[in-house]
Design a protein around this nucleic acid. Sequence first.
DNA 1: CGAAATCATCGAACCGGTTCGATTCTCTCT
DNA 2: AGAGAGAATCGAACCGGTTCGATGATTTCG
Lengths: 351, 351
Amino acid sequence: MNIGEIARRAGVSRSTVSYALSGKRPVSEDTRRKIQQVIDELGYQPNASARALANGRTSTIGLVFPPAGNHYTGMQLDFIGSVTEAAAAYDYDVLLSPSGVDSDRSFQRLLGERRVDGAILMEIRLQDDRLDHLTAVDFPSVTIGRTARPEGSWWVGLDHTALAAACVHHLADLGHRRIAFVNRPEQLLRAGYESAQRGLDGFTKAAAERGLTVRTYCCGDDATSGLTCLERILYDDPATTALVTLNEAALGGFYRGLAQAGRHVPRDFSVTGVVAGRWAEAVTPQLTAADVPAEQMGRLAVDLLVQRLDHPETPARNHLLAPPISLRASTGPVGAGPADLAPDFGTPTHP
Amino acid sequence: MNIGEIARRAGVSRSTVSYALSGKRPVSEDTRRKIQQVIDELGYQPNASARALANGRTSTIGLVFPPAGNHYTGMQLDFIGSVTEAAAAYDYDVLLSPSGVDSDRSFQRLLGERRVDGAILMEIRLQDDRLDHLTAVDFPSVTIGRTARPEGSWWVGLDHTALAAACVHHLADLGHRRIAFVNRPEQLLRAGYESAQRGLDGFTKAAAERGLTVRTYCCGDDATSGLTCLERILYDDPATTALVTLNEAALGGFYRGLAQAGRHVPRDFSVTGVVAGRWAEAVTPQLTAADVPAEQMGRLAVDLLVQRLDHPETPARNHLLAPPISLRASTGPVGAGPADLAPDFGTPTHP
DNA sequence: CGAAATCATCGAACCGGTTCGATTCTCTCT
DNA sequence: AGAGAGAATCGAACCGGTTCGATGATTTCG
């Protein structure tokens, strides 16, 4: 069932069918109806490859994210979901590309074989060769996260510096003097991951400002690493009373470690950080944290990309978000008395 | 940089370039070298749309999953990741389609516009109109999960019946007599989701076999719903001593509810179910559960689909998996004494 | 009333690949 | 030496759309 078949059955030429469908030239009401009728009868839908070849647009956007190996985090899932749905609303499909660097085969395919009209990059590094490459060949893209020099490029990002600082101030206000910072895995920090770098930066500066004693750690993206890391923290400085983390996947491990060490959260120890809201609420006690608005970010990224595709000459736009800290149940004043200060679900009512 | 440009610069015809690249006809060593040299110079890669149009294959597979709205679970994330990586290994790209039913626009696009060579469907229902549709039009597909009548179709599935039953037997062996079953949301159960239906079935039969007193619940896919559900369970029958769940997203809520009610896990209450391993290990205490081998399943699904695409006449194949229960820390004998039976991280070593 | 503008439609060219049949040249075998 | 096989290459057709320019019919207006 191709356009020629439709044309034949409707008794018109192929071009007329095309114009009837696209509306780019007037077609008489009669023929339009006749064509539509044939199309409905046969359930015709134009072939995407042929259309893409002819008009140079694939109606597909690429979503580039680093391969798992290391694990996926919940945040990535939220991005993938929201990007896909936002794209669907614009009649774009989403092609997944698991690429960490610009030399990845799948990344080359996206670009070189022109499989997509534009790309959204996740997990940006401060120096990102993937983005450099895209910029060099003038390929429309939007990043979730921003590089060291984000001017003139399209992105939606989180103000990790401010967010980490806000966590520090929150803890300092509660009286904490010795706090730890738990970052994403060292490998990612080294590679220059934006959130890891800027988060660390914001934390360090804010802590210096408030005159706090701090230690910083890197930690694998899983609960077991979290547990190990927490043991290390308490070993290095048993007087630590709080931690700030960017590592949502390790959260369960921190809690477990604290429980094992007999530290009650938040009575004896406060935990906070920058985490997707949905995951902050999945742990007990619920995490006081700056909630990463992953869904909104995915949507915004698609909005920007579509705009860029529709109006190629628009000057670069971006969105820098800095969500407030959501107060939940994992932080409290330092050195508080026993039970009376435990929030929300106070004394166990053991039967 | 199209194939004509390469041909001109190499001083040969377009077809020769094509044959040099595909190897489908012999090309002399000299010309092959010359062509390769030009290609390297210009960084030529053949246009995917043109190639797809010409030979009818897009080298893309569609991954169909229901839209979020309701939330994504960790398991879905694992599927998406593993499918994408497995596909990349076969040089296939993955196109995401958020479609719950066969009338979704994005689903229609995949098929009608021939954007993909084949599809992998997630979140299968016992009667699945998407699969019916694909089967009717003879479109190559593999499902993750199986319908009520899976004979003759391609799938990789989990034996939810057996898995839920195994959980029941595990608890019954530990002496539990009154246990609850917490399913996925009611809406999904009603819609006929395979895991929800077969899991409930397996649970019910095994419980009857062992003469247990049971109640079954549905619960939203988030921690808050989990909390509410758990309160309900203890309200309905305070003598309940264990629960089996398929709902990994609500897990955090169960634990929180149990903590609030003063029930210690596993001393006073056991929790088990069918959950992706990575998430079972993220909670404290770690969940004793049948681990869903999401990565393996995604890989197998791609293997099957690629095989089906390469050999269209192969009779249908499938994989039914039934992973064993991984013993961790969330289940224990009923009515055990106080601290001595707490596993793994016994007495707190408070400094 | 005739020229100009507008409308509806058609045919041909094009997008960038793949593939088939034909052609030319060289080598082998009888 | 001549027939036949096989290698290397070319030109043309094709995949299924879109788009441009041309054409004939109809309407508008001076």
